[in-house]
Design a protein around this nucleic acid. Sequence first.
DNA 1: CGACACCTTGAATTACCTCAAGCCGAGTGG
DNA 2: CCACTCGGCTTGAGGTAATTCAAGGTGTCG
Lengths: 249, 249
Amino acid sequence: MTHHTPGHAATPSGQVSRCQGCSLCAHCLPLGLAPDDLEQFDAIIRRPRPLKRGALLVREGDPFTSLYVVRSGSFKQVVADTGYRENVTHFLLPSEVAGLDAVGEALHPTSVVALESSFVCELPFASLEALSDRLPALRGALYRCMSQELHRDQRLHCLLSFATAERRMASFLLGMSERHAARGYSPYGFQLAMSRADIGSFLGLALETVSRLMSRFQRHGLLAVRGREVTLLDLPALEALAEQGETRR
Amino acid sequence: MTHHTPGHAATPSGQVSRCQGCSLCAHCLPLGLAPDDLEQFDAIIRRPRPLKRGALLVREGDPFTSLYVVRSGSFKQVVADTGYRENVTHFLLPSEVAGLDAVGEALHPTSVVALESSFVCELPFASLEALSDRLPALRGALYRCMSQELHRDQRLHCLLSFATAERRMASFLLGMSERHAARGYSPYGFQLAMSRADIGSFLGLALETVSRLMSRFQRHGLLAVRGREVTLLDLPALEALAEQGETRR
DNA sequence: CGACACCTTGAATTACCTCAAGCCGAGTGG
DNA sequence: CCACTCGGCTTGAGGTAATTCAAGGTGTCG
């Protein structure tokens, strides 16, 4: 691993790897920073850190010190619900930020777990704060990140309140598709890094329901699924399901 | 409305009414600001604005310019779901902040509607930004506000994913109780400003279910309810329902 | 006093869950 | 190389919590 930079993947710590060369830069937190500012931003980053599948990036109750940007791989954010049920509240893909729910708090309210071998960039929040003193654009970027997450949470709230299982599932798949597409990958085919149980937990469904819906969607020609490999075959139909998903309530 | 200050309620615009004298100050956004800083904060506030029941404080799609702090009364935050269903995503009580989901965005993603006659303090965000350049504590307060909301959204996510109707309802009532208590009112008795339909929308339940649960709780001696007047009689029992609420899934 | 919005309660339906069994694929070790 | 195991996935059958539909009650305001 002391060879040369392995393409788009993150480099192990010790290697130089700058934001400027990162393929995610266009979607990442410092989006919109001027080149000079980006340089400064770059300077405060603790270089990519590797995590194996199942490893905890953040444990609920840990003191808050840093934000983390997913560089490669993926994570789930989980809350240990009252009464020993773990509940998945978010999935994080490359360029997405973990720890925002702890900004300005002392402790992390949620855990973040790697779903596969992954790398993260660590942003010590104190440095980030200090830097944002001088870079209003950075402050704006932080605000934008947080409010976007608030916004997404609200849409999720709607989904969980009112949508049938079918609609939730369709929305989830489309959401994944969009997020992959935004990063330059195909919106049609992708790997789900998380288990059916994780998806169920996230969507408020039993894992059996998730499985059944996948099968049903496949039977109806909306997608092809084999294990965690998904290929969306009929986006418009999925969108129709997700958008209005028939009347209910 | 040009008479004198009506007790603890907000004063109509035109009247002087400072943060320093506001009974909510202890829980409000500028919490923790030094007296001198509070003075400056005070200076950027547009003085309380009255809204009648049903009035829109913010309409979905409005350009974002300001945050609003509820001074008296209450609001619901609603999303016009895809397909013409309105979905309540939050209720706002005095000292709580509306508009955080639009910070750093161009447009408001949600509407905010008065549930009763209410007053709000308007905080032009540009001024807030400018001021927070000089007052790190203010920036911290903003961060804290946003991350707290993120945190609350996650707990809500858990509730909506996994909880029975009974548990949701108990949690909701306890949450209201807490928020009232935090403002110095009784945690036992309060008025619900919102309709059963609003509660149902918020909790992902049919309004009939909300009604039935209220009745059931009353029958079991957990509370007394008459219209929108609620008196919690057995907090521990409600907490038991809310906490573990029996196994499910 | 009638109109209207909101709330309550009942009866029937249903979407989703639970329980249970079997399958598949990957890793392990004989 | 095969048998074994183990976690994750699929599928079926049956049960149930919460919904929908429907009717009637209550309070409020013009």
